[in-house]
Design a protein around this nucleic acid. Sequence first.
DNA 1: CATGAATGAGGTTTCATTCAT
DNA 2: GATGAATGAAACCTCATTCAT
Lengths: 236, 236, 236, 236
Amino acid sequence: MQLMDEVVTQPRFGPLPRKDEAAIPAPQPPKQALRDAERTRARILAAAAAEFAQKGFAGARVDAIAEASGANKRMIYYYFGSKEGLYTAVLERAYAEMRASERALELDHLEPFVGIQKLVEFKFDYFVENPSIISLLNGENMQDAAYLRRSDRMADMHASLVQTLDALLKRGARAGSMRRGVDPLHLYISISAVSYFYFSNASTLSKAFGRELGTPVENKLRRKHAVEVILAYLRA
Amino acid sequence: MQLMDEVVTQPRFGPLPRKDEAAIPAPQPPKQALRDAERTRARILAAAAAEFAQKGFAGARVDAIAEASGANKRMIYYYFGSKEGLYTAVLERAYAEMRASERALELDHLEPFVGIQKLVEFKFDYFVENPSIISLLNGENMQDAAYLRRSDRMADMHASLVQTLDALLKRGARAGSMRRGVDPLHLYISISAVSYFYFSNASTLSKAFGRELGTPVENKLRRKHAVEVILAYLRA
Amino acid sequence: MQLMDEVVTQPRFGPLPRKDEAAIPAPQPPKQALRDAERTRARILAAAAAEFAQKGFAGARVDAIAEASGANKRMIYYYFGSKEGLYTAVLERAYAEMRASERALELDHLEPFVGIQKLVEFKFDYFVENPSIISLLNGENMQDAAYLRRSDRMADMHASLVQTLDALLKRGARAGSMRRGVDPLHLYISISAVSYFYFSNASTLSKAFGRELGTPVENKLRRKHAVEVILAYLRA
Amino acid sequence: MQLMDEVVTQPRFGPLPRKDEAAIPAPQPPKQALRDAERTRARILAAAAAEFAQKGFAGARVDAIAEASGANKRMIYYYFGSKEGLYTAVLERAYAEMRASERALELDHLEPFVGIQKLVEFKFDYFVENPSIISLLNGENMQDAAYLRRSDRMADMHASLVQTLDALLKRGARAGSMRRGVDPLHLYISISAVSYFYFSNASTLSKAFGRELGTPVENKLRRKHAVEVILAYLRA
DNA sequence: CATGAATGAGGTTTCATTCAT
DNA sequence: GATGAATGAAACCTCATTCAT
């Protein structure tokens, strides 16, 4: 969950700052006083992300998170209110970060094929670097997005990305180099799919086919393959 | 989990028939008793599949399975020994059935593009009809295939399918109509991915993009898209 | 809580038979099979009544109740669902029993003064024999009847008693021997008060006045006094 | 708990001024600091009285008291040492104030019936104005006066009142207008009872009889009734 | 005087599993 | 074959209390 730390959230401490955590730009208090609370909170969040990713919501143990984070179990409730609150915080953070990274891509002004290739590669690389996002999403999807469904903070999520894709597709089509009539959402889904599934199902696939996936060598192969599949589909 | 019932496993009723269940042809007990036992067992298995799919291994409740199946809780232990035993049985059954269905496809003698299109469509349709397999696989992958890893009964799994794919690819390449140098495993993964991911992540995608996926209309669109993506990639 | 056992409730077992417990006249199953469940449930209820009476809802310990009842802690949840459920059950039972006892009085056809004297004495004696009802009521009243408020099963409670009192008052007034214009509800409250308060506040009163209340000798005095206060008030 | 503030106790602020608080005349610190400390202490005490009255000792939450009083939780420990210490302080204060108010009555030289009527009315009015004293006493009595029992400061409590009552009774008896042989303690108990019980059990009574008690109209009725009951009993 | 962060003991509740019939 | 009752371990969570500043 390394990348997570790069998301800029205002330092938070005190009990249960649940709603719109990052919304209020708090005045900067003296460094030292803050540090502990902020760091404790961050450490809990990091430990929780790992635990929830590996075991799912039901399988995760609050005790394990407390221990892994080096914090007292009570602190988890002090900062997040409940196991569920912690889970939601982890989920929102992971999601928010992914969105932020996508936003930072700025594909709009690239040549269409170049832009889309960049997106495919970004997706692949992102999953390499943030493996827990896959497990977290898997867990959520298994329970029909029970927790994300309740979160207001991720309503607008990728909307922008699909619009960006749409613009690229239109430009490419106008230029005559790109297939017409492509549904940008389904394209986005396929772009995600060819990377996501490779990672998410690596364990069972490796076992089933007796070929260890997820290794650097295999990843390189897969990354290239993913780009080819998507670009081949888009060529006019 | 309707299709599951068509898999022919030997009826089992004594306690703990864990290993190699179907291997030994059990002595034939009086018809009626057998039927009841078999039916109880089947009902437990079906209820368990639903529960495990929805909640994962840790989140699933033995009580809930007992109630849903109409069986006494004790029976679960009588037939499957433990929650873990039940989970393994569910997993193996789902896997075995998927394999059996794939085997029944007989793509070998089809024209390469036709064969591959048929496979893409089969995958898609299979997930439509057997939604729980996706959740079960997700659960397994989240815990690094902890249970499947231990199962001997699924060693040879899809091996055959990849070989079939390889043959089709070679034939297509020789004929000059098909792209050369395609890795059949990665092709298989992509074929699975474009359908699987659409279903597995339908909940979060629907929420994120504000477009309800999984509906008949949307499914039809997706199925067509999936075929196009794969075939476009393969065209020489 | 001895008297409680005389209340006739249908034997109940199995998990969480919360609503209208006593309403359905269950068919009488074989004695032996029932016994344990019924007895366990009764023992938990008795232990809980004692614990809740002494410590209040918040102060009571589920562990203590389990131990005192000789039952496993889990059984409490099996039969009553939660600490709150158990508390409600205790409360309803105590209340229902008091109502049943009052109903059994049959004061209607007595000479008015005799009838009212009998009621005063009954109230006094009931508190002597069922001390926990006082603590339970105290606890409820401290929290503004939070739990009783939610219980449907005690709506009609004493209604009948006040009507009985009203009839006696009217008869006495017509005969010229009894004070006119007495509000039967406030009379009932006073009848309860002169006994209840003596018991409910015995501890602090004893301490404050340095005279041990609640002893047999003192009780005899108090009982006589209570009767005199009420009857003197009613004489024309 | 407004009346409480009128009790004159020496302002206290150092840590743990538990025993005989008011006995030692503390050195006078600078006015302002003193005022703040005193005010914080008073606010905590007031909030605590409300919380303990409503929830009992076990049900009360130190956090809730801190929040309601606007003070930091640490301050509670600074001033009162522990939850128990705070509870005792609340109890003693409430008790001391009631005693002080009773002392201020000066019934000794009144005509006996007038004096006793005044006492009945005083009791009633006191409970109207100090509702929390009832809950606090209830709580104490539920746990057999566990805390009051330990307090030295309330040994002599009402002793004087009973003596006053005794004097009035004797005077009335000598004058021939008043019943002879009345036990002044039991009279005092009855006087308390007819008001106390009405308030202490208002919640359950209101629910049970479907008539809202504690309203101004109902209170007026009750007050009159209480006086009548006691005076009728005393008439020769 | 005051505060936010931290703690550990203990409380309620849940769960897979087994016993007795 | 089947059932309801029972169990103990462990899970989540709460609370009074203390530490560091």
